[in-house]
């Protein structure tokens, strides 16, 4: 009966939602210290290629590959984050966009390593590995009433779900602390923050690197969920898509990123019946949203109101 409820296709869409949420949060974290980065797609690509290559060539276990991918992206984030300190606003946006393009062009041209524009296939997939490992341990998915591919998709989904919860928990805790206050102070007035004794360099690089780690992590997961990657997965369109998740949902609060990534990933699926027009609609939607709610769908006020009305229900009587 469980088997009838679980549709691997839908589970895969759900997994993409979760990966996209991590990407959206990577932009959110960087923005929370006032830095608009369009480099997420580039860092995502670094994470994806690193993890794919080390798992294929050195036969690292997937989990190690994913960690290595995230760390390498993070190191690159620090290396880029330091010179990027000299830039702000749209300059930073364009420079990071450029960085993403340079990374993509390197993926295309470094054929001996990356297999060029064709990309890398045969990347070990998380779902399959889990099925094999559990089978070796003597567990059989059918005992749960599941087919192997259902079991695979379900475990991928659950792993990503737990990871999402952890990341959100981490970022929320960080936000409500001395570190989070330093980030917002820098976002609101960098000079004043500096005068209040905040080491602006340190915190800006920290938040930039955190964004890079998250994007790299998401990229590595993407590689091991899809099984194949190519440079075009990490091009301009991906960078813009990720930024839009965050801004559409609302960049002031983390809920905005979660909502934006979920809504915009699911929308094309729902709009499948008019798939020819869906990107045209998408474009118009962005224009209308910015005119009506430039801060994004969800902002601090909405959250406060929601909380209050819930609180009202509890204490009301």
């Amino acid at each position: 009966m469980l088997g009838e409820l679980l549709n691997p296709y839908q589970l895969q869409i759900a997994s993409f939602v979760l990966i996209n949420i991590i990407l959206a949060i990577s932009v959110y974290v960087t923005l929370s210290s006032g830095q608009l980065s369009l480099g997420s797609a580039g860092f995502m690509g670094i994470g994806a290629y690193t993890s794919a290559l080390v798992t294929i060539h050195f036969e690292f276990p997937i989990i190690v590959g994913v960690l290595v991918g995230a760390v390498v992206a993070g190191i690159l984030g620090i290396l880029i984050g330091i010179p990027a300190l000299r830039l702000s606003g749209v300059y930073l946006a364009i420079a990071t966009l450029g960085l993403g393009e340079v990374i993509r062009v390197i993926f295309v041209n470094w054929e001996s390593l990356t297999n060029g524009a064709v990309g890398i296939s045969n990347i070990p997939q998380i779902g399959r590995e889990i099925v094999f490992t559990t089978r070796d341990l003597g567990f059989n998915a059918t005992s749960l009433g599941l087919q192997n591919n259902q079991f695979a998709s379900l475990s991928v989904f659950l792993i990503l779900f737990v990871l999402n919860i952890f990341i959100i928990w981490f970022i929320v805790r960080q936000k409500n602390s001395r570190v989070g206050r330093a980030f917002s102070a820098i976002q609101l007035d960098e000079k004043a923050a500096e005068s209040m004794g905040i080491n602006v360099t340190y915190y800006k690089v920290l938040s930039f690197a955190q964004g890079a780690v998250l994007a790299g992590l998401a990229g590595a997961l993407f590689a091991h969920v899809m099984g194949y990657i190519s440079p075009s997965d990490f091009a301009y369109h991906r960078a813009v898509e990720i930024l839009i998740f965050t801004v559409f949902g609302g960049s002031e609060v983390i809920v905005g990123s979660v909502f934006g990534a979920a809504f915009l990933t699911l929308m094309p699926e729902v709009l499948r019946f008019i798939s020819e027009y869906r990107y045209i609609i998408y474009g118009v939607l962005l224009v209308i949203l910015m005119a009506v709610r430039p801060q994004g769908i969800i902002d601090a006020n909405i959250l406060k109101r929601l909380k209050r009305s819930k609180g009202g229900d509890v204490h009301g009587s």
Partner: peptide, 17 residues
């Protein structure tokens, strides 16, 4: 509280945990 930043020292790990 931001004003008190430089008289305190909790970093990311302490803050998150």
């Amino acid at each position: 509280m931001v004003g008190g930043h430089c008289r305190s020292e909790s970093g990311v790990m302490r803050s998150v945990f």
